[in-house]
Simulated assay, not measured.
Amino acid sequence: MQDIDTSETKLTTFPDLTGASVFITGGGSGIGADLTLGFLRQGAKVAFIGRSDADAFVRQAERETGNKPLFIQSDITDLEALRGAVAQAEAAHGPVTVLVNNAANDQRHETLEVDEEFWDWSTSINLKAYFFACQTVIPGMQKAGGGAIVNMTSISYMMGNTGYPIYTTSNSGINGMTRSIAREFGPDKIRVNAIAPGWVLTQKQLDKWATPDALAAHLERQCLKEHLSPEDIVGATLFLASSASRMITGQSLAVDGGVVVSG
Rank of each mutant, 00 (worst) to 15 (best):
Gly43Gln: 12
Asp16Leu: 03
Leu240Gln: 08
Ile248Met: 08
Glu184Gly: 12
Leu35Phe: 03
Thr123Phe: 07
Glu110His: 12
Glu117His: 11
Val58Lys: 00
Asn101Thr: 04
Gly146His: 07
Phe57Lys: 01
Ala47Lys: 00
Glu117Ala: 15
Ser229Lys: 15
Asp55Asn: 15
Gly38Gln: 12
Ala217Arg: 03
Val100Thr: 03
Gly94His: 00
Val22Ser: 04
Phe185Asp: 06
Asp3Arg: 12
Leu40Gln: 02
Pro187Thr: 14
Ala148Glu: 03
Val86Cys: 10
Phe57Trp: 00
Ala56Thr: 08
Gly94Asp: 04
Glu64Ser: 11
Ile190Gln: 02
Val100His: 09
Thr6Phe: 01
Gly26Asp: 00
Gln203Ser: 13
Asn101His: 02
Cys134Tyr: 11
Pro139His: 05
Thr25Gln: 04
His227Phe: 10
Met141Pro: 09
Thr168Leu: 12
Gly84Val: 06
Ser124Lys: 08
Val255Gly: 06
Asp232Pro: 04
Ala196His: 08
Asn126Tyr: 01
Phe132Val: 01
Glu80Cys: 10
Gly19Lys: 11
Thr25Asp: 02
Val100Gly: 10
Ile190Asn: 09
Gly163Phe: 06
Ile166Ala: 12
Ala133Asn: 01
Thr77Gly: 01
Arg63Gly: 11
Arg246Glu: 15
Ala54His: 02
Phe39Asn: 07
Ala182Val: 00
Met158Ser: 13
Glu8Gln: 13
Ala61Gly: 03
Met177Val: 05
Val114Ile: 14
Leu17Asn: 05
Leu17Thr: 04
Ala236Trp: 03
Cys134Met: 11
Thr136His: 00
Thr153Glu: 07
Ala89Asn: 07
Ser180Asp: 14
Asp256Met: 01
Val260Tyr: 00
Ala47His: 03
Val192Ala: 12
Pro139Glu: 03
Ile49Pro: 01
Ala104Val: 05
Thr6Asn: 06
Met177Asn: 09
Gly50Trp: 06
Ile76Asn: 07
Gly38Val: 07
Ile174Asp: 09
Glu184Asp: 13
Ser242Glu: 02
Gly263Asp: 14
Thr9Val: 12
Met1Phe: 10
Trp119Ala: 15
Ile181Trp: 08
Asn126Trp: 03
Val98Asp: 00
Ile248Lys: 06
Gly27Gln: 10
Ala241Cys: 07
Gln205Ala: 15
Ala144His: 04
Pro95Gly: 13
Asp232Val: 00
Gly257His: 04
Ser243His: 07
Gln2Trp: 10
Phe39Ser: 08
Asp75Arg: 09
Ile248Tyr: 01
Gln142Met: 14
Glu64Leu: 09
Phe48Pro: 01
Gly235Asp: 12
Ile24Val: 09
Trp199Ile: 09
Gln2Tyr: 05
Ala87His: 12
Asn105Tyr: 06
Ala44Tyr: 00
Ile149Ser: 00
